[in-house]
Simulated assay, not measured.
Amino acid sequence: MLTQDITKELEAVMEQLQQQGKEPTVALVKARMKTPVPMPALIATIKSWKNANGVPKIEVALQTPKEDDRITVLENTVAKLLDRIERLEAQMSEKTS
């Protein structure tokens, strides 16, 4: 399984909250994250931040495109290719006529 290191993003969120004078909570951190993070990882990060003022290295599984998105992309690609084939066939028939 491929993973993505989100430590720097978490650090940035925690520092931003601290600069705003806000206490980091699971809800506040989760709302500001661009990458989905599991609750246990958020809880461990907040505990570490409060105790050591640092963020441990956190990695999460890479997000794979949803199957519906993949199907839509494939359908669009097939439609474009079919259109291209039809245009090429029309050009070839004009040249042979």
Score class of each variant (00 low, 15 high):
Met1Trp: 12
Met1Lys: 07
Leu2His: 10
Leu2Cys: 07
Leu2Ser: 10
Thr3Val: 07
Asp5Trp: 01
Asp5Arg: 03
Ile6Cys: 01
Thr7Val: 02
Lys8Asp: 12
Lys8Gln: 12
Leu10Val: 00
Leu10Lys: 01
Glu11Gly: 04
Ala12Ile: 05
Ala12Lys: 08
Val13Pro: 07
Val13Phe: 01
Val13Trp: 01
Glu15Lys: 13
Gln16Phe: 12
Gln16Met: 10
Gln16Arg: 10
Gln18Tyr: 12
Gln18Asn: 13
Gln19Val: 08
Gln19Ala: 14
Gln20Trp: 08
Gln20Asp: 13
Gly21Asn: 06
Glu23Asp: 14
Thr25Glu: 09
Thr25Asn: 09
Val26Lys: 08
Val26Cys: 10
Leu28Met: 06
Lys30Glu: 14
Lys30Tyr: 10
Ala31Asn: 03
Ala31Phe: 03
Arg32Gly: 03
Arg32Glu: 05
Arg32Leu: 09
Met33Leu: 02
Met33Cys: 01
Lys34Thr: 13
Lys34Leu: 06
Thr35Trp: 03
Thr35Ser: 04
Pro38Arg: 02
Pro38Ser: 00
Pro38Lys: 00
Met39Asn: 09
Met39Thr: 09
Met39Gly: 04
Pro40Ser: 02
Pro40Leu: 02
Pro40Gln: 01
Pro40Asp: 08
Pro40Arg: 00
Ala41Lys: 07
Ala41Tyr: 11
Ala41Gly: 00
Leu42Thr: 06
Leu42Cys: 04
Ile43Val: 13
Ala44His: 06
Ala44Met: 07
Ala44Thr: 05
Ala44Lys: 09
Thr45Gln: 00
Ile46Glu: 04
Lys47Cys: 05
Lys47Arg: 11
Lys47Ala: 09
Trp49Thr: 00
Lys50Leu: 12
Lys50Val: 06
Asn51Met: 11
Asn51Ala: 13
Ala52Thr: 10
Ala52Glu: 14
Asn53Cys: 11
Asn53Val: 09
Val55Gln: 05
Val55Lys: 04
Pro56Phe: 11
Lys57Ser: 14
Glu59Ser: 04
Glu59His: 05
Glu59Leu: 06
Val60His: 05
Val60Tyr: 07
Ala61Ile: 07
Leu62Asp: 11
Leu62Thr: 12
Gln63Glu: 14
Gln63Leu: 11
Gln63Met: 11
Gln63Cys: 07
Thr64Arg: 12
Lys66Cys: 13
Glu67Gly: 11
Glu67Asp: 15
Asp68Cys: 14
Asp68Lys: 15
Arg70Pro: 06
Ile71Asn: 10
Thr72Gln: 12
Val73Ala: 10
Val73Tyr: 05
Glu75Trp: 04
Glu75Asn: 07
Glu75Asp: 09
Asn76Gln: 10
Thr77Glu: 13
Val78Ser: 05
Val78Asn: 02
Ala79Met: 06
Ala79Asn: 12
Ala79Pro: 02
Lys80Leu: 05
Leu81Met: 04
Leu81Asp: 03
Leu82Val: 07
Leu82Met: 13
Leu82Gln: 13
Asp83Gly: 12
Arg84Trp: 08
Arg84Phe: 11
Arg87Gly: 08
Arg87Thr: 12
Arg87Asn: 12
Leu88Asn: 13
Leu88Trp: 13
Glu89Arg: 09
Ala90Cys: 07
Ala90Pro: 08
Gln91His: 15
Met92Pro: 11
Glu94Ser: 13
Lys95Gln: 10
Thr96Ile: 08
Ser97Gln: 11
Ser97Gly: 13
Ser97Phe: 09
Ser97Glu: 10
